[in-house]
């Protein structure tokens, strides 16, 4: 079996009295595609932020490739080779698509190589027509695609995506699915998602969150058939 690249042990995050994440233990292996699903407020994004260092977990530990990274700052975690896309779209608005992607590549290669890399990623994501445009002027779907470009340019071995398909058109979602599957050739990909259609199309192992805990973890088809999951998740109109 492939090595474990991401592991959490009893991860817990409390906000005052609210227990957003409650003793979550996960294991993701190299080149695995893993979806984290669950109803709104289940604690997916909070767990996600604990993984990438934006939140310091109240309890529990995080390991990346066997190294404990609990409480590390985000830049140290990213610098390990972890590509991150937050739920809320976040890019350098005043800079062009090319400059955004160049910056992602530049961290682990010299300036010239980063320019080549940016060109490569722009071609791969079909962003050529808007490569010189400022991010601030782009449509939502395009911005999401650029964010994916930032992740790709980092050549990560672990990719963390929070709701990458939110607000996209069906066509864009399909393309996103292809890109994510392609990423798993070189990286483990963890996708937090809400859109059931999209999750089915990815056909991966699914971890279901409910009230901060892991409810079940199994292949998507079996999870969908699980009456308990249907009850807490699908029952609420997803």
């Amino acid at each position: 079996m492939a090595e474990t690249v991401l592991e959490t042990e009893g991860l817990t995050m409390r906000f005052g009295g609210v227990v957003a994440v409650d003793g979550v233990s996960l294991k993701v292996r190299a080149r695995e595609l893993r979806c984290l699903i669950g109803p709104n407020g289940a604690g997916k994004s909070t767990c996600f932020k604990c993984l990438c260092g934006l939140l310091k977990p109240t309890e529990g530990r995080v390991f990346l490739r066997g190294e404990e990274t609990t409480g590390w700052d985000p830049h140290r975690i990213a610098a390990l080779g972890v590509g991150i896309k937050m739920q809320v779209s976040s890019v350098m608005d005043g800079l062009s698509v090319q400059e955004n992607i160049w910056m992602a590549a530049r961290r682990h290669m010299d300036a010239r190589a980063a320019t080549d890399k940016a060109g490569e990623v722009i071609d791969r994501l079909a962003l050529g027509a808007i490569a010189r445009a400022d991010l601030g002027r782009l449509a939502h779907g395009e911005r999401q695609r650029v964010e994916l470009g930032l992740v790709l340019a980092q050549d990560p071995w672990l990719v963390l995506l929070d709701e990458p398909a939110a607000g996209m058109t069906a066509e864009e979602v399909a393309r996103m699915g292809d890109i994510i599957r392609e990423m798993t050739r070189t990286a483990a990909v963890v996708v937090v998602e809400h859109d059931m259609q999209f999750i089915r199309s990815l056909a991966s192992t699914v971890t279901v969150f409910h009230r901060g805990r892991v409810l079940v973890e199994d292949h998507v088809d079996r999870v969908m058939a699980d009456p308990v999951v249907r009850d807490v998740y699908l029952g609420k109109g997803a």
Binding site: R76, M92, M103, A104
Partner: peptide, 8 residues
Amino acid sequence: ERVSLLGY
């Protein structure tokens, strides 16, 4: 925040 999430 984005730049720090790129590892800088």
